[in-house]
Design a protein around this nucleic acid. Structure first.
Lengths: 188, 188
DNA sequence: CGCGCGATTGAGTAATTTCAAATCTAGTGG
DNA sequence: CCACTAGATTTGAAATTACTCAATCGCGCG
């Protein structure tokens, strides 16, 4: 279970056993049940979560009460309210569990201490954040240039696992499409 | 002119004069004319650009030949093809100048050397990248939850300067709206 | 004066949403 | 093992939103 986190980090920087134990000492572990909230808008939410098992979503509820999904996170992915995490401000997003979930989590303060102590971890987080930035740019491009149909099929191809594990209504919300439209797309 | 870069960095980390000169030594300076390309899709594009003067855009040309603007950058902003920059792969985006432009630029290799030599710069780039990530999340949210009209008026309120300096057609492309629709929105 | 580019306007069309109702499905208690 | 309910999904039809295509307008510059 720890190995999942270690393997994730070692995709980018190599760690000795001692270094990994140091890293791990800055993280905490926690279990959540399906439907449980990890972050609620308004909370201080200074933690970033690495998913060991389960499935979560982060979402925003707009002025009309509609929810818009920003991100899913399954095993080996990270999830947080990035703005609340980095700026130490109250959360504007919610994060909750779609399945029973296990995570390692780290506060922004711990993360900065860890990076001060072990420089290569700062490099790791920089690379990870840059990769996230690139992924968001791709998503923006998809929203700008593709039809609902194209977005859905690209999602299905890119994340076949999520297609299985998620209710269609959540995929619709992620793609920015009504559930009725998505249903019609999925049929064709 | 150097001061603009120094000021930008010192929003996040403080530098001595010596440190700043070290930083500067890793950057190069260059001037571009209006309409000139800074990056072309297919090129190796290992540079990130800090704008001292001028205005640029990064954009993607899709399979139908339509262009979609990912980002504008004016004074005090950064621009690149992030994927090409971080992964050292050929560019998929174009970057060109909307006005005559002056930039400081740095290659990914130089940046990594600089960070190795001056640790706090890695912290700076991490914070900068995280801030960019948060901005992209906001844009995704706006694409998911707002109508063309709301997106336009939010853009106008957020970037009054860009509204002045940019042809409307480019704003339309950034917002994911046809120029005709944007024209009707801007009137009402 | 007239060209050329950016912006606007109009009319018809396509994509997607909304509202409403019907259908399906998995899990629960008897 | 079956009936039942809540939630998820599908279907239909009307209403909206935004797009496309085409024509026109406005204006700065040679």
């Amino acid at each position: 279970m720890e190995q999942l986190l270690r393997h994730q980090i070692e995709k980018i920087v190599q760690l000795t056993d001692d270094e990994f134990h140091l890293v791990l000492s800055y993280f905490s572990f926690r279990t959540y049940k399906k439907h449980q909230y990890v972050v609620q808008a308004g909370d201080m939410a200074p933690n970033d979560h690495f998913v060991v098992k389960g499935l979560l979503k982060s979402f925003y509820i707009d002025d009309d009460g509609k929810t818009h999904i920003l991100q899913f996170a399954m095993e080996d992915w990270w999830i947080s309210d990035p703005q609340a995490f980095h700026n130490r401000t109250p959360a504007t997003l919610h994060v909750d569990c779609i399945e029973d979930t296990d995570v390692y989590y780290i506060s922004i303060d711990s993360r900065e201490q860890l990076c001060a102590e072990l420089q290569k971890m700062e490099y790791f987080f920089l690379k990870k954040t840059a990769a996230g930035y690139i992924a968001l740019q791709r998503r923006i491009l998809s929203l700008l240039s593709q039809s609902a149909d194209e977005r859905y099929h690209q999602f299905a191809q890119l994340y076949p696992t999520l297609l299985q594990r998620l209710p269609k209504a959540l995929i619709a919300s992620y793609l920015g499409v009504s559930r009725e439209t998505l249903s019609r797309l999925a049929a064709g």
